[in-house]
Amino acid sequence: MRGHAFVVAGYIPGNSVFHRMRLGLKAAGLFLVAVMCLASPFVSVAVGFWTTTAALAAVVGAHFAAGLPWGRLWRAVRLMLVFLVLIAAYQWWQHGPAVAWQVIAAIIATVLASNILTATTPVDELLDGLASIVRPLERIGADPERFSLTVALMLRSIPFVIGAFADVRDAARARGLERNLMARSLPVVIATVAYARSTGEALAARGLGEPAIKTVERAYKD
C-alpha cells in the first residue's frame, strides 16, 4: 500500500523462500533462534558456544538466501557495535573468550533473524498479523476495530509529523534559529496537537472511534 510509503523502508521486495513463507512460520523460526541462543548456555559453555555459532551461521546463510544485501547485515551490527565491544570485553575478562563469543553471537543472530523477518514481510502483512493476535482479545473486552483504527491513524500521521518537522526546520533556518531546540520542536508539537484534534473531531463527526457502536445499531432499528 503506497500510503505507508515512509514505513515501508524496512521491506525489501523479492521472491525468496522467506518472502513466500507465511508470517506465522517466520515468527516461529525467529522464536526458535532466540530460544536456542538464550537457552543453550544453560546446558554447558561448550553446547552454548557451538549451538549459538551454528545458529549465527544459519541466520547469516538465511540472510543471503533471502536476497538481502551485505549492507543491511553490516548496518544492523554497526548500530550495536559500541555496546557489543563493551559487552565482549567484560565477558572475556569475567568468563573468557568462549563465553564472550557466545553472548555476542547470540545477540547478532537474533537481531539478524528478526531483520530477515521484517525485510521479507510487507507492512500490511505485519499489520494483519498484529490484528489477528489482537482479535482473540475481544472476549476479554478489547476492541480490535478501535485498535486497528488507532494503528491506521498512527501510520497515516507519520508523514504529517515528518513534514511538520521539515517545515519548522526551514522556518528556523530562515530566522537563524537552527540550533535552538525549542524553536525546532515547539511549533512541530503545536501543529501536531492541532492536527490530532481536528482528526479526532472528524472521527467523531463520522461516528468512528467511539466506544458505543451498539447504540448505532439500535438507532437504525427503531
Binding site: 491506521a152 473531531e201 472521527l203 447504540t215
Partner: peptide, 22 residues
C-alpha cells in the same frame, strides 16, 4: 450517535478528515 449518522460533516481541511492512507 443517531444524529451523526443522519448529518454528514465535511471539514475545511480534508487531510484531517481522511483517516486512512488511501
Amino acid at each position: 450517535t443517531a444524529v451523526r449518522s443522519m448529518v454528514g460533516f465535511v471539514f475545511t481541511d480534508p487531510l484531517s478528515q481522511l483517516v486512512m492512507p488511501t
